[in-house]
Design a protein around this nucleic acid. Structure first.
Ligand SMILES: [Zn+2]
Ligand SMILES: [Zn+2]
Ligand SMILES: [Zn+2]
Ligand SMILES: [Zn+2]
Lengths: 134, 134
DNA sequence: TCGCATATGTAATGTTATCACGAAATTTTA
DNA sequence: TAAAATTTCGTGATAACATTACATATGCGA
């Protein structure tokens, strides 16, 4: 009981697949990569993802229907995260901005909106991929 | 040539369906609502949506795979919009926040990331739906 | 009228996600 | 430890979302 959560076998396999990947993976891509490990059906992936998302070890990228391992798994403190997703190479940067989180919280407060989850995603081109393109 | 764009018949039908709706609609819901008008296949909806999104008359809500008519169709100026989506009643509020847009632009500048599109979506509970729930 | 761009109709297919059911494994409690 | 409750897992079917491919039509300038 050293780590905060013990993962089941399936959860560990899915998390490893995401950790090993250099880019976000779709649930079905994960399934394909885990067939050798005995995965047969989408639900095996989705169930593991559900738990990993709940724990906070994995994030879902809503705008591309894909999943990434959290970039800061040690500090589970994250509230609102933002993701910059390169549309060329798939690279993802995860970051926080307290001012943005505050502004959104302010808006919600004044409008009496109760946020359960906040999604911030930048789609574009990363530095590496923009080299050579004026 | 009073309006900025002339819509085709299909585009007008899809836009009307979205304008008339009190909540975001999925592409397939739009299809069902337009069957009386001769729609038969998903592509008729998706093609119209593609154009309406390009023009800026309609927005896509990435986190729920649905579409809404723009709340400010007159000022086509909008850069980054944010959406507050009620998970109970489906009501959507569209708003801007220049400070948030600036912070994101700053992050992108310093990280040499070139954003093509920015997604901000708050999922939660609107004021009306939170009355009576402590 | 020809050529081109845009819009449309339709079927088929691809991709993403969930439901329903039961069995197995694990944890809880007596 | 044995029974009960809870959680996890396996599997097939199905639902929901989106695109490809190809044929046809329509409008417009040369
Ligand atoms: Zn994270
Ligand atoms: Zn890149
Ligand atoms: Zn708008
Ligand atoms: Zn509501």
């Amino acid at each position: 009981m050293t780590t905060a959560h013990d993962l089941t076998k399936n959860q560990s396999l899915v998390f490893s697949a995401l950790s090993d990947a250099r880019a976000p993976l779709s649930a079905y891509t994960i399934l394909d990569r885990l067939r050798e490990d005995g995965f047969r059906a989408p639900l095996q992936v989705y169930r593991a993802l559900e738990k990993l998302l709940e724990i906070g070890l994995v994030h879902r990228l809503e705008s591309i229907n894909a999943f990434v391992a959290c970039a800061h798994p040690q500090c589970h403190n994250h509230g609102t995260m933002a993701f910059a997703i390169c549309e060329d190479c798939g690279n993802v940067r995860e970051f926080t901005d307290d001012q943005i989180a505050e502004r959104l919280a302010d808006w919600a407060r004044t409008e009496n909106f109760r946020p359960h989850k906040t999604i911030i995603e930048l789609r574009g081109q990363c530095q590496a991929c923009s080299i050579g393109e004026p």
